[in-house]
Each structure stands twice: as C-alpha cells, then as structure tokens.
Design a protein around this nucleic acid. Structure first.
Length: 540
DNA sequence: GCCGTTTTCGGCCCGACTGTTTTCAGTCG
C-alpha cells in the first residue's frame, strides 16, 4: 500500500519533470502546492474515497484522479509520459539534493549534459561556473553529491578506491600482524574499474572488533567502498592469490605449473620468467618480452615531461605560471600547455588574440628558468564535424605541437567517427591524437571507432596517440597498445590536467600503459626535453 | 490546475536559507 509520502513524492516529481519541459508554470505550481499539502496530511490517502481527496486544500478533481490512479494501478500516465521523454540521467539528476528543476533544466538544455557522469566530468573541468546561477560552491557541492552517487552504483574507478583499499589493508595488517592479508583481484591488478576492495587472507577476520570511523559495518563498506574479504587456508594462499591476480589469458601460461609455491616469484621462476607485477598480468603474448634484456616497460620514473594541460586561459583552475612551476618543482623537464581552442566555447577556448597573449607569457616564463626546463606552446584543437582543425594554417604552424581531439557532436556511427579522426590525423599540423574515443568510464561509452584504421593512419602520418590518463578516460584503451607498438607509434601518457594536483593523473595512465606492455621507447613523454623537442620538430 | 468570488474568469505570491550578486533566484522542507 502506498503511503502519503510516496504519493506526494510522485506528485512532486510530476511538477519537476513538467518544469523541465516548459509546461504551464501555474499547473506546475499547482502540483508543487499539492505536494506540500499531501506531505503534511493526516489520515491515509489510500483509505480515502476520491471525493474526500478532492476536498483537500490545493487538490482538485484532476489531481485527485491522478492520486486514485496511482493508488489503484501503481502508475500515473501523466508522469510516465514525461519520464518517457526525459533522458534517464536527467531524471537521476533531479534526485540529487541541491539540484532542482531549474538548474537541471539549465544543465540539460544549456550545457547539453544528459548523465550524472558527464556532469561530474564537467565539474572537474570547472565548466559549470561559467553559467549564470552556478558558482564554485554550487559546482563543488554538485561534484560531491555526484561522486557519492557514482560511488553507490556498484562499480568504481580504481583511482577513487585505491587509497581506501590501502588504508583498509593497513588497518587489517595492524590487527593481525602475523597473518597473510593482501589486496587481491581487480584492485590489485589496478583495473580501471573495480567492484570494491577485494582482500584475501588466511585468518577469520572479526570486522566488528576493528576500530575505524570509516568502517560502516551495516553496509560492509570502508570509506564508502564495498569490501569483500575471502578467507582461505594458509596452504593455498599463494596459489589462490596468484590466480586471482592474473587475467584468464595470462593464467593459461601457468597451467602446467604447480602453483602451491612459497611465493609468487617461485611460480614465475618455474617457467623461467622474472617476477611480473600484478598490474601487468594481462596478455599471455607479452610474457616472453620480460625475458628480453632490451625490454623496458614504462614506469613513473621514466616520465620526463607533462603533456596536455589546461590553465586559466581556458577552463583550468590554475594559472599558466602556477602549473608550470608545479611541474618544474616536481622534477620534470618540460611542460606542454594545451588549452582549449577557439571553437570550444563551453570551455573558454582561445581566440587568436588570447593565443598571442599566452605565447608572450610562455616566452617570458621560459626566460626565467635557468636549468633547461621548458614550457612548450600547444593547443588542444577541436576536431570539427568535417574533421578539420579550427585555426588557420598560419596559426597552427606556430605551435610547438598540436593535440587534436573531438569534443562535440559525439553521436556518430563508426564510419563517420573513423573518417573524422583520420582527416584530423592527416592534417600536417596534428602531432598527437587526443582521447581517441571520448569515453568517460562509468559515465558514457564513447563513440565506436575502427581502431585498426585509426592506428594505421597515425603510423602513416607520424602522429602520436594520447593515452589520456584522466582515470575517467584512460583512452586510448590499453588493449590497443600492442598493435600501436607493432606499428611503432609513440604513445603520450597525458594527464589532461585542469589543476595542479591532476598532473598526477599520469600515474593512472602509466598503470594502464603497463597492462598493454608499453615500453619507454614508444612513450613520447619518456623522452627527455631535447629528444622530445627533436621529435616534435621532425614531425613539423 | 485550483480557487473563489463583488461567480465561471483572472489571479495564483509559504518562509528560511544559501549562494550568487550586489538585490535576487533557486531550493528545501
């Protein structure tokens, strides 16, 4: 039986969705008022005849009928109609506190954002604050709510979970110092998406005795992420841990090995391999490379420069000087500033005069460093619908390098997307293809592309491909790295940083790149400043 | 859509709070 509160909520929702669709404001007001009377009402609506419902202040015959329909059938046709013509993600936004119909309408119609995930991404890129009624506080508030919302959907970004996972592991190890307790499964393998914190142990853990305010016993979560503790006998710990920490494909290579070893290194040694870290245990075909003395799998220590960053010139949070200094003080050799280009109106893309201004500032900044550190002039140039870039050639040729990315009109079939990308790749001024599919993990899938054709085109034109290291992108997907390397393409692991701290996204890109076996030789920003400088100029 | 008459159309207008603006708009309960 429906409660008054449940009925009132449906009427309230009706008012809100009608407002999204620009219905008569007085009708909307009526339903909003009806909601207010209903939630304060004494006596159960479900027990009232329709005549009595219609006598309630603010409820007339039309609303009374809708309430009866709801009580008798569980549905309301009028509400269903509006729900059918509204994207599910937009309806979801209405459930977020602080987002009412007016703001949601603005988000949907003005910003053209239709899912909670896209909205979160827009918050991270400071895109909301450019709209009237939205400021930094509202944006931060929405962001917090969305992260919570996303964190409750059953899948999580590795980047969001791993610190909590390590914290939880630490907590358990302190409590049971003499037992085997380790992270296992997807979280240990640093998969871009994980289901939570997987822990493998040989002790029966008594969670209720653990002292930590982040531990939510009722919901089995630690810092809002679900945990899964599997207890197994000590004797099978290593074999189970190893099996849980490899892909199916990778594990096939060890079918004939006795996994009951004293540690994982022994298992690898039985096949004549060196120890392979869990995040690299993906493709069986890559294993032999680990025995090649020339093979240098990329790692964070190899990263020499930070490519693809934004500043306050477009939609970044920090100034060019702040960003450059931050990268400099973290020991890198160079910084590539790639703000948005002029057609990216939503992100404050740079018109020509602002470009000149930025170039002058870059020259000024470069003159101040006396240790060889260099800021390179770049742009994240929008790939327009027809595949062209959005500046004239005489502008494009003045950049040190150009990153070409698709940002708008993402609804394309595979042929359209592929030819649009290839046209941009064939542009003589394109240096790097940015986030090739536009995907946002857990939010939107990205347009389909013919990877083989796109990678072949990059090879033919000497264009590097970005592995966008934003943990919500990780695009190029690592599974295409072996083919890209086969074609001897350079991969740039780029943070797409919109603030100083997001420079460190590079780490997640490196994790992903290692899955695909990317070597330092094929990592563009593993080149030192001079080699990088030479590489981009030979491309020009 | 509801209401209430100076009855059948014209007006409908919660208050506190917050954030964005700079005197107001949106949201909540």
């Amino acid at each position: 039986m429906l409660t008054n509160k449940q009925i009132a909520a449906k009427i309230d929702l009706l008012a809100k969705v009608m407002e999204l669709h620009d219905e008569n404001p007085f009708k909307i007001k009526t339903y909003a008022n009806a909601y207010l009377s209903l939630r304060k009402l004494e006596g159960s609506l479900a027990d009232m005849p329709i005549q009595e419902i219609a006598t309630i202040k603010g409820i007339g015959s039309s609303t009374a009928e809708k309430i009866m329909e709801l009580i008798q059938t569980g549905h309301m046709k009028a509400l269903q109609h509006y729900q059918d013509i509204t994207p599910a993600g937009v309806l979801e936004m209405l459930t977020i506190k602080g987002l009412g119909p007016k703001k949601v309408k603005q988000i949907w119609k003005e910003m053209e954002i239709e899912t909670a995930g896209e909205l979160l991404y827009a918050c991270n890129e400071n895109r909301l604050i450019h709209y009237s009624g939205f400021g930094t506080k509202v944006q931060a508030d929405i962001k917090e709510k969305l992260e919570y919302f996303q964190a409750s959907q059953g899948k999580y970004l590795y980047a969001h979970v791993h610190q909590a996972a390590e914290g939880f592991l630490h907590l358990l190890k302190n409590k049971y110092p003499n037992q085997q307790i380790e992270l296992s499964g997807d979280i240990r393998r640093k998969m871009p998406e994980v289901k939570g914190i997987e822990i493998l142990t040989d002790v029966s853990i008594s969670i209720s005795t653990l002292q930590d305010e982040s531990l939510d016993l009722e919901n089995n979560t630690y810092k809002s992420f679900p945990y899964f503790i599997e207890t197994i006998p000590s004797a099978s710990f290593i074999s189970t841990w190893f099996s849980r920490s490899c892909s199916e494909d990778f594990l096939v290579a060890f079918e004939d090995v006795d996994l009951a070893a004293q540690d994982e290194a022994t298992i690898f040694a039985a096949k004549g391999y060196p120890y392979i870290p869990a995040e690299c245990r993906e493709l069986k075909a890559l294993i032999p490379a680990f025995n090649n003395p020339e093979f240098r799998l990329v790692s964070m220590e190899d990263i020499k420069g930070i490519v693809h960053n934004h500043s306050t010139y477009s939609d970044g949070l920090h100034t060019l000087q702040q960003m450059a200094d931050y990268v400099h003080t973290h020991g890198y050799q160079y910084f590539v500033i790639s703000d948005h280009s002029k057609s990216a109106g939503y992100a404050g893309g740079l018109k020509e005069d602002r470009l000149y201004e930025q170039w002058r500032e870059i020259d000024h900044i470069n003159a101040k460093y006396n240790d060889g550190f260099k800021v390179f002039k770049s742009i994240e140039s929008d790939i327009l619908i027809d595949g062209s870039l959005d500046y004239a050639n005489e502008i494009l040729q003045q950049f040190d390098l150009v990153i070409a990315s698709i940002h708008s009109v993402l609804n394309m079939d595979i042929d359209k997307a592929t030819s649009r990308l290839i046209k941009a790749i064939e542009n003589p001024y394109t240096t790097i293809l940015g986030h090739p599919t536009g995907r946002l993990l857990l939010a939107r899938p990205g347009y389909a592309v013919d990877y083989l054709k796109v990678i072949d085109a990059c090879a033919a034109n000497g264009v590097a491909i970005e592995l966008n290291a934003n943990p919500q992108r990780l695009d190029l997907d690592w599974t295409w790295i072996p083919y890209a390397m086969e074609k001897d393409i350079m991969i740039a692991i780029n943070p797409d940083a919109h603030s100083m701290v997001s420079i460190h996204y590079v780490k997640y890109g490196v994790d992903a790149a290692r899955k695909g076996g990317l070597t330092t030789t094929n990592c563009l920003n593993a080149l030192g400043v001079d080699a990088f400088s030479r590489w981009i100029s030979q491309k020009k």
